[in-house]
Write a protein that binds this DNA or RNA. Structure first.
Length: 558
RNA sequence: UGGCCCAUGGUGUAACUGGCAACACGUCUGAUUUUGGUUCAGAAGAGUCUAGGUUCGAGCCCUAGUGGGCCAACCA
């Protein structure tokens, strides 16, 4: 069995693994390790999330530790159960199994009690100012903030107000619960951050039970603590939150539990791609793509429809590695892993995407014969199939030229080429319309050169081999040809996204395919020989449509 | 006028904690090939942002500078 040498990862440890190893040496027990993947169910997962998913779940495998899937659902305004389901399905599709499924909303009651505990300990207070006012008092990174006039509100009063807030006795925006930390901290997040706000909004799980909701910082570390997460991994922009994360943990009633450790790694960026939720939804709103699962989207759902194999995504993010520096990985690396996976597994099929007629003038009219074709030269278990050959065929328009230079290996007048799995032919003449477009090519074939026969002629080498289909037995197939969505390598840099959009990223064409395509069911990934990889998008009532996954490497220098 | 993080071939990640910079993608040769695919063999390409310092020795340590990122949502 050939092992993929790219997957044999060397035994170096990334900096997260090094931290874990270090902790293990310092007394952390292996069975105390626990990880989590904590998405907010407010949108679709994308390739960036695959990095976080793979990081956590592979760590779980490596250390035989549990990995929880936890929905960070503290903002009912944006979240819903549709996203929850989509996220679950995406993770399953990647092949990972979570140990527990959790929701921050499961902890609302506990969080609420702990919040009272903070108030009692003079670590939190109810602020009754407008949000604009609070923002103003925050100061700036270079100027300290100022204390709220409510900062020294008596504990009893804060306790009463907080209880009333929870009981629905106050309007949205009238009060918030704030942590009492330090208004002149260098870290903006430590300037008395908001812990709770009033929101009269139904929650996808708790319904109308609550009208106050905890903020991220107050909920996240505490959720980690409750689930006994040992290492809480997130992306770099959360680095400044670490101080707060630890401060909150320190305020909890003492228990004999270890504090989870937040550590940050760089998010994944990809060339010719945007990743932010805002920009992705912009593409949808402006009808540049059809939806979150449009095959051109970098979402997992999009990539599924595009035909990217799960293993390719995982190999890709593993190879991209875990580090702390800003990066933009070339999409070609992703495409490499996609092609690598597909090459091993896909059956080959001959499909002509831009057809011209080829007439074999010395092949009898009305006759046809069956030829044999290997389904996948990389995997003999996929067997063989039969294809129809006759006098009237289709070939690819770009595979014929009247005259050819030395670099053109394909069909030209007076030149020979092999028809894949069939005979060697020689072009004699072509017929054109008044515009000069080639309508049909007339050629002769060499009957002794038939593929697979043992004659010397069948072994004859010619420079080129082209694909073809028999006109009479061919079927029409719909093909969505996809190209990259952006022309610019770093579309994120341009605020005007529209300017960098590739207007031709999707083209619908009708191709001519051998009958083999009829046997493919939805989701089947195939290679159109000499063209690229495609996935069956639909196959109903004999109407079959494909999405292009990625093209084959093209070594031809024109 | 602030704080924190980062800086290695075109891209991404390494360099066993100081010992003549490696791997993958990409690029370029050549071989094989009934896919200009795959496979195989090989090559070019960085002297590690800059300037100092410590050291027999620095990509790794120290100092300063430069460049980039993040931080002022009742978002996560």
């Amino acid at each position: 069995m050939l092992q993929n040498k790219n997957i044999i990862l060397s035994n170096y440890k990334n900096f997260i693994e090094q931290i874990i190893e270090e902790d293990l040496k310092k007394g952390y027990k292996r069975d105390e390790l626990c990880f989590r993947f904590p998405p907010e169910p407010n949108g679709y997962l994308h390739i960036g999330h695959v990095k976080a998913i793979t990081l956590n779940f592979e760590l779980g495998k490596q250390y035989n530790a549990p990995v929880n899937l936890r929905f960070d659902d503290t903002n009912p305004v944006k979240e819903n159960s549709h996203f929850v389901n989509e996220i679950k399905n995406n993770i399953k599709w990647l092949g990972y199994k979570w140990s527990k499924i959790c929701y921050a909303s499961d902890y609302f009651e506990q969080l609420y009690k702990w919040a009272h505990h903070l108030i009692l300990n003079d670590k939190a207070y109810i602020d009754s100012q407008a949000s604009e006012q609070i923002a103003l008092q925050k100061g700036t990174p270079t100027n300290p903030g100022t204390n709220s006039p409510f900062r020294n509100r008596p504990q009893e009063e804060s306790t009463r107000l907080f209880t009333e807030m929870r009981d629905g006795k106050h309007k949205e925006g009238s009060h918030v619960l704030r942590a009492k930390i330090k208004m002149d901290s260098q870290n903006m997040l430590m300037r008395d951050p908001v812990m709770y706000r009033i929101l009269y909004k139904d929650h996808h799980r708790t319904g109308s039970n609550w009208c106050i909701y905890p903020m991220y910082d107050w909920a996240h570390g505490e959720s980690d603590y409750i689930e006994k997460i040992s290492h809480s991994l997130c992306t770099l922009e959360f680095k400044p939150h670490r101080d707060l994360y630890e401060w909150f943990l320190d305020q909890l009633p003492k228990k004999n539990k270890k504090k989870p450790k937040q550590r940050e790694f760089a998010r994944l960026n990809m060339s010719y791609t945007v990743m932010s939720k805002r920009k992705l939804s912009y593409l949808i709103e402006n009808k540049i793509v059809s939806s979150w699962d449009d095959p051109r989207m970098p979402t997992i759902s999009g990539m599924i429809k595009r035909g990217y194999p799960a293993q390719a995504l995982i190999n890709f993010v593993k190879k991209a590695g875990i580090a702390k520096r800003e990066n933009t990985i070339d999409v070609s690396l992703l495409e490499f892993f996609v092609k690598e996976e597909l090459n091993k597994t896909c059956p080959r099929v001959m499909v002509v995407t831009d057809a011209i007629k080829l007439i074999i003038i010395n092949y009898p009219e009305g006759k046809h014969e069956m030829l044999e074709a290997i389904n996948n030269p990389e995997d003999e278990h996929q067997g063989k199939r039969e294809i129809v050959f006759s006098r009237h065929l289709y070939i690819e328009r770009e595979d014929f030229r009247e005259t050819a230079n030395r670099k053109f290996f394909r069909l030209a007048i007076g030149k020979e080429v092999r028809l894949k799995n069939a005979y060697i032919i020689k072009a004699e003449k072509c017929i054109k319309n008044e515009n000069g477009d080639v309508l049909e090519v007339h050629c002769t074939y060499d009957p002794k050169s038939k593929s697979g026969s043992n004659s010397e002629e069948s072994q004859r080498k010619v420079k080129g081999t082209i694909h073809w289909v028999d006109i009479n037995s061919s079927i029409d197939v719909k093909i969505n040809e996809y190209d990259r969505l952006f022309l610019k390598e770093k579309p994120e840099e341009n605020d005007d996204l529209l300017k960098s959009i590739n207007k031709d990223s999707k083209k619908l064409i009708i191709g001519k395919s051998e009958k083999f395509s009829l046997s493919f069911t939805k989701g089947q990934k195939v290679q159109f020989q000499r063209k690229g990889y495609y996935i069956v998008d639909e196959n109903q009532h004999g109407i079959i449509s494909f999405n292009k996954t990625v093209g084959l490497r093209d070594g031809w220098k024109k």
